[in-house]
């Protein structure tokens, strides 16, 4: 079970949180001018890396705030937690696959 440090509440058990998938997916605007191919890319295509993953989580059964974490998808180690208004931390993306 993960222990996740909510930036607003502190460290809590995984079952208070919900994972919202890959972070930093910018909504293409204006949407009407986006091609079908690019729109599909935005809707469905994901990095799905074996390694570091930047992802959104919500402290759903707590403060209900969303935030981002950097997590390794093999070790499940969480390398960084940051608020949505913060820039992604500088972690070595190719680290230990």
């Amino acid at each position: 079970m993960f222990r996740i440090s909510c930036p607003f509440c502190g460290e809590r058990d995984e079952n208070e949180f919900v994972c919202g998938g890959q972070a930093h997916i910018a909504r293409p605007e204006p949407a009407e001018q986006v091609s079908e191919r690019d729109w599909a890319e935005y809707l469905f295509f994901r990095d799905n890396p074996k390694g570091l993953h930047f992802e959104r989580w919500q402290h759903r059964y707590g403060c209900r705030q969303w935030f981002n974490i950097v997590r390794h998808t093999v070790s499940h180690e969480i390398l960084a937690v940051y608020r949505l208004d913060e820039a992604p931390p500088d972690v070595d993306r190719e680290e230990a696959v």
Partner: peptide, 13 residues
């Protein structure tokens, strides 16, 4: 487990 994973082990929950 509803998060990305390449670890062949599941969560306790």
């Amino acid at each position: 487990d509803v998060y990305n994973s390449y670890a062949q082990r599941g969560s306790y929950d």
